[in-house]
Amino acid sequence: MTLLSLQDFGAALRGRTILRDVTLRVGPGELVGIIGPNGAGKTTLMRAALGLIPSSGSSSLAALDARARGRSVAWMPQAREIAWPVTVETLVALGRTPHLAGGARMSDADQHAVDTALAQMDLTEMRGRTATHLSGGEQARVLIGRALAQETPLLMADEPTAGLDPAHQIATMQIFAELAEAGKSVIVSLHDLGLAARHCTRLIVIGDGALRADGLSEEVLTPALLRDVFGITAHLQRSDQGLIFQPLAVLS
């Protein structure tokens, strides 16, 4: 079963080609990290694959109609926006939007999905609290809860660990890893290569608007690739805790 398939995929913004010739396929049970330097096109790749911006080539998700897509993939933009002081439960329940027919109220199944998502993110206790009054880490958890309540086989998140402390970063990646183990798939863009190397089952490297590498962390994070794409040297070590990656120096 394929959850996302891109074929000769590309995207242009304001007449400038941001991304070209990307072909990849994501199946179930994967935790895919998209890495690349600033401006490489990670966000553009995800938004174009979702059909939020115009693209060329084919994307299995962009081809779906809006509601079907909402049931196939949950999308977490980088900006953690919560516009109104609604309760945590209300915010998580917004994840049911693509499942509700026009004007229909939430069914028991919908409420069950919300309760499950709240429990999964350890939010049951604070379901009645105002989401905008929570700390950044708590808000991030609530927004992941919203994506879980959407009950999609695929979750895409843009920089979900940005602005979080180490404990929250690791916890977030562990939640994604658990989802992948349960048979769902998660695609995350990451700047922290250490987190990516340690937690992702697969890395996709974007550089200069093209796919530069796609595979297991150890196969992808070679000195040559780090030099060419990121312009850095790094220390990479295999341990019983998984892969340990530490950037060392900038190459001029």
């Binding site: 939020l52 897509r69 900006a79 939007t97």
Partner: peptide
């Protein structure tokens, strides 16, 4: 309601 999460998230939920 969906727009509470921002335009991008709302669009991805089928709005």
């Amino acid at each position: 309601d969906a727009l509470t999460l921002g335009e991008d998230a709302a669009a991805a939920m089928g709005i």
